[in-house]
């Protein structure tokens, strides 16, 4: 995993804590039921503050991807693939992750999130083709 450590804020800390327990959760508005991501205090649909977590399966479709070949992260010189995924559960939401399959993604293909445990405190969400549902974290290397 070639990235920086995330810096959670007061809106997102609990989301990262859940991810560390290998739970993928989004917020659900108490007032209107709209699901949202990333974590924020207000519902953009009804402008109310009350919400609760809704655990969901991390799945989506491939919107785009890049193969990064410039050392934008100090110390990481090898190419890596970052995928932009449209979340199925939350309309309009885009998420990112490293690609955990030996082939490149395809436009619009269905993908499933896979929890990659970096260390005791940190887990991040990567993505793999949906057909590999039983994928285990770290099973595949990111595409070179």
């Amino acid at each position: 995993m070639p990235g920086y450590r995330p810096e959670p804020d007061r809106d997102s800390r609990a989301w990262w804590d859940r991810l560390a327990r290998h739970e993928f959760a989004v917020q659900e508005c108490d007032a209107c039921g709209t699901l949202r991501f990333p974590p924020r205090a207000f519902c953009a649909a009804c402008r109310q503050e009350g919400w609760h977590w809704r655990e969901t399966v991390p799945e989506g479709t491939v919107e785009s991807w890049i193969v990064s070949r410039q050392p934008f992260v100090p110390g990481h010189r090898d190419p890596y693939l970052v995928v932009m995924v449209r979340l199925t559960a939350v309309p309009g939401a885009l998420v990112y992750g490293n690609w955990r399959a030996e082939r490149q993604p395809e436009a619009g293909e269905r993908v499933r999130g896979t929890f990659t445990q970096v260390d005791e405190e940190l887990t991040v969400l990567d993505w793999a083709p949906e057909s590999r549902i039983a994928i285990r974290s770290g099973e595949n290397s990111p595409v070179r």
């Binding site: 995993m1 070639p2 990235g3 920086y4 450590r5 995330p6 810096e7 959670p8 804020d9 809106d11 997102s12 990262w16 990333p38 919107e63 785009s64 991807w65 890049i66 990064s68 410039q70 934008f72 992260v73 990481h76 890596y80 970052v82 932009m84 998420v95 990112y96 992750g97 490293n98 970096v118 940190l122 991040v124 990567d126």
Partner: peptide, 24 residues
């Protein structure tokens, strides 16, 4: 606050971000 959802994957720089939109 948006950076935390991108930086862990090495997705941090404008050339990467615009390349992502370009491929779309």
């Amino acid at each position: 606050p948006e950076v935390q959802y991108q930086a862990p994957y090495g997705y941090v720089a404008p050339p990467q971000q615009f390349a992502m939109y370009a491929r779309a």
